[in-house]
Lab assay of single mutants.
Amino acid sequence: NQASVVANQLIPISTHLTLVMMRSEVVTPVGIPAEDIPRLVSMQVNRAVPLGTTLMPDMVKGYA
């Protein structure tokens, strides 16, 4: 099972991601792979992401 990136807190819209905001967890459905966490740092979310939500490629500007 592959770990995905999950929000560690509420991430407001247009926030630049930091390591503190993300954790890796095995979830269904599978989202952005956990090994991409370093790549996600300083990218922006294009919507509010609630605590515990799996980050999907379409939620992060410039990821997909």
Results as ranks from 00 to 15, higher is better:
17 L>G: 00
51 L>R: 11
12 P>L: 06
22 M>E: 01
50 P>V: 07
30 V>W: 13
24 S>C: 08
7 A>I: 04
48 A>K: 13
1 N>V: 15
59 M>D: 13
46 N>Y: 11
41 V>F: 05
11 I>E: 00
58 D>Q: 12
35 E>R: 07
34 A>N: 06
2 Q>C: 12
22 M>H: 01
60 V>C: 03
50 P>M: 08
9 Q>G: 04
3 A>G: 13
57 P>G: 07
22 M>N: 00
17 L>R: 00
21 M>Q: 04
54 T>C: 05
48 A>F: 10
24 S>V: 11
53 T>L: 12
29 P>K: 05
5 V>F: 03
41 V>R: 05
60 V>S: 01
27 V>R: 10
22 M>D: 00
51 L>G: 10
5 V>I: 11
50 P>S: 13
24 S>P: 12
38 P>I: 11
43 M>K: 08
19 L>T: 07
52 G>I: 03
40 L>M: 06
25 E>P: 01
22 M>F: 05
58 D>C: 15
15 T>D: 03
58 D>E: 12
53 T>F: 12
27 V>A: 07
38 P>M: 09
33 P>S: 09
38 P>R: 09
63 Y>A: 03
29 P>Q: 05
21 M>E: 00
45 V>F: 02
32 I>N: 01
32 I>E: 02
64 A>T: 15
46 N>T: 10
5 V>C: 06
25 E>F: 07
2 Q>E: 15
44 Q>E: 11
51 L>E: 15
7 A>C: 04
1 N>F: 12
5 V>A: 12
56 M>D: 05
44 Q>V: 14
3 A>C: 09
15 T>W: 09
59 M>V: 07
20 V>Y: 14
61 K>W: 14
1 N>G: 15
47 R>W: 06
3 A>I: 07
3 A>F: 09
18 T>N: 05
23 R>T: 06
1 N>I: 15
44 Q>T: 15
23 R>V: 05
24 S>N: 07
4 S>T: 04
37 I>V: 06
25 E>A: 13
40 L>E: 00
11 I>M: 03
47 R>G: 05
23 R>P: 00
18 T>F: 03
22 M>P: 00
20 V>G: 12
32 I>S: 01
21 M>F: 03
56 M>Y: 10
53 T>K: 09
13 I>L: 12
28 T>I: 11
35 E>C: 13
43 M>I: 04
27 V>C: 06
40 L>Q: 00
34 A>K: 06
33 P>A: 14
38 P>W: 13
18 T>C: 05
6 V>Y: 02
34 A>T: 09
64 A>F: 07
12 P>W: 04
3 A>K: 08
12 P>R: 09
36 D>V: 07
58 D>N: 13
6 V>H: 02
3 A>R: 07
17 L>I: 11
19 L>A: 12
9 Q>R: 10
35 E>Q: 10
58 D>K: 08
32 I>F: 02
38 P>Y: 14
29 P>R: 05
20 V>K: 14
15 T>R: 06
35 E>G: 08
31 G>N: 01
47 R>I: 09
39 R>L: 10
59 M>Q: 04
62 G>N: 12
23 R>F: 04
14 S>M: 14
35 E>K: 08
32 I>P: 00
19 L>N: 06
5 V>R: 02
50 P>Y: 14
42 S>R: 10
45 V>E: 00
11 I>N: 01
6 V>E: 01
16 H>C: 15
55 L>W: 03
64 A>I: 12
4 S>Y: 04
1 N>T: 15
61 K>G: 08
10 L>D: 14
33 P>R: 10
15 T>V: 08
62 G>M: 09
10 L>G: 12
2 Q>R: 06
28 T>K: 07
50 P>I: 05
52 G>Q: 01
15 T>H: 05
5 V>W: 02
38 P>S: 13
25 E>V: 10
63 Y>S: 03
48 A>D: 15
16 H>W: 10
